[in-house]
Computed example of a mutant assay.
Amino acid sequence: MASASAHKGAGFDFSNEVRYVRFRNSFLTDRGIPLPKATSTGTTIVGCLSKDGIILGADRRATAGPIVVTMPKQMLFRCHRLQLFTIHPRGSTYKLPYVTVGSGSLTAMAVFEANWKPNMERTDALDLVCAAISAGIFTDLGSGSNVDACVITASHTEMLRDYVKPNERVQKERTYKFRRGTTEIKNDEIRALAVEEDITYIPTARGRRAT
């Protein structure tokens, strides 16, 4: 009889996480507690290789479902060699000259594919990163606000907060103020909504299940 291999493949092992999720779900459902719902999040984060290091960039908007917050997003990295990796939740890694992640990644990737070149100077690479983040800001509802950048070399790391401000508010040409009652309310009506539910029990192997 063949025995199970003790060798683990490359990448991260998420088997404990899978077992925990199954245990958590059964623990909650057995007690009638609804399972937590997934929350849609959004942002744009990019990175690319330059001649002397790595340039990273991110927008300042954090989106989680209906909540939208503008806040600084801290990214910490350590550079040993000029290499840039992206790591997916499933554990796979990709070594690439430029990467984009987040809800605005497709638009940002188009900017890199059209303009990135090997051995770019610091200024050119930094401008390209800002252009990619700005593309995500203007085309993705989950991204927004200003552009943060980070320049990483073998000797130092430089954080550039609010390096580009593509959405600065300008002074309005006029001040619009309307006196109370300008828009007249013709009528006011309140309706009571009655909701009816039909519960049908379907016999299963473990008992009855409501639908």
Results as ranks from 00 to 15, higher is better:
residue 122 R to I: 14
residue 12 F to E: 10
residue 29 T to W: 06
residue 159 M to K: 12
residue 153 T to F: 08
residue 175 T to R: 02
residue 124 D to I: 01
residue 84 L to T: 00
residue 49 L to H: 04
residue 59 D to S: 05
residue 175 T to W: 02
residue 147 V to T: 09
residue 93 T to Y: 05
residue 29 T to L: 11
residue 2 A to D: 14
residue 56 L to W: 05
residue 182 T to D: 13
residue 194 A to R: 11
residue 51 K to C: 05
residue 34 P to N: 08
residue 40 S to T: 10
residue 107 T to W: 07
residue 179 R to E: 12
residue 127 D to W: 04
residue 156 H to F: 07
residue 43 T to D: 08
residue 132 A to I: 00
residue 46 V to K: 02
residue 185 I to K: 03
residue 176 Y to A: 03
residue 155 S to H: 14
residue 50 S to K: 00
residue 146 N to F: 15
residue 151 V to L: 06
residue 44 T to S: 03
residue 48 C to G: 01
residue 198 D to F: 15
residue 9 G to W: 01
residue 66 P to W: 08
residue 156 H to D: 13
residue 64 A to K: 07
residue 33 I to D: 14
residue 180 R to N: 04
residue 98 Y to G: 00
residue 181 G to D: 02
residue 99 V to G: 00
residue 131 A to T: 02
residue 96 L to I: 03
residue 13 D to T: 01
residue 38 A to H: 14
residue 183 T to W: 08
residue 200 T to K: 10
residue 36 P to N: 15
residue 103 S to M: 04
residue 187 N to K: 12
residue 63 T to F: 05
residue 123 T to H: 12
residue 152 I to H: 13
residue 117 K to W: 02
residue 176 Y to N: 07
residue 96 L to E: 06
residue 78 R to A: 09
residue 186 K to I: 06
residue 35 L to H: 10
residue 22 R to S: 12
residue 123 T to I: 15
residue 186 K to N: 03
residue 156 H to G: 12
residue 25 N to I: 07
residue 5 S to I: 15
residue 26 S to H: 09
residue 125 A to S: 01
residue 17 E to A: 08
residue 35 L to S: 10
residue 2 A to I: 05
residue 152 I to V: 09
residue 23 F to P: 13
residue 152 I to R: 08
residue 131 A to E: 02
residue 196 E to P: 07
residue 80 H to F: 09
residue 79 C to R: 12
residue 100 T to K: 01
residue 206 R to I: 14
residue 15 S to D: 01
residue 158 E to L: 07
residue 39 T to I: 13
residue 33 I to Q: 14
residue 130 C to F: 03
residue 108 A to F: 08
residue 19 R to S: 13
residue 209 R to D: 12
residue 184 E to S: 05
residue 108 A to D: 01
residue 187 N to L: 08
residue 109 M to D: 05
residue 76 L to C: 11
residue 97 P to K: 00
residue 135 A to Q: 04
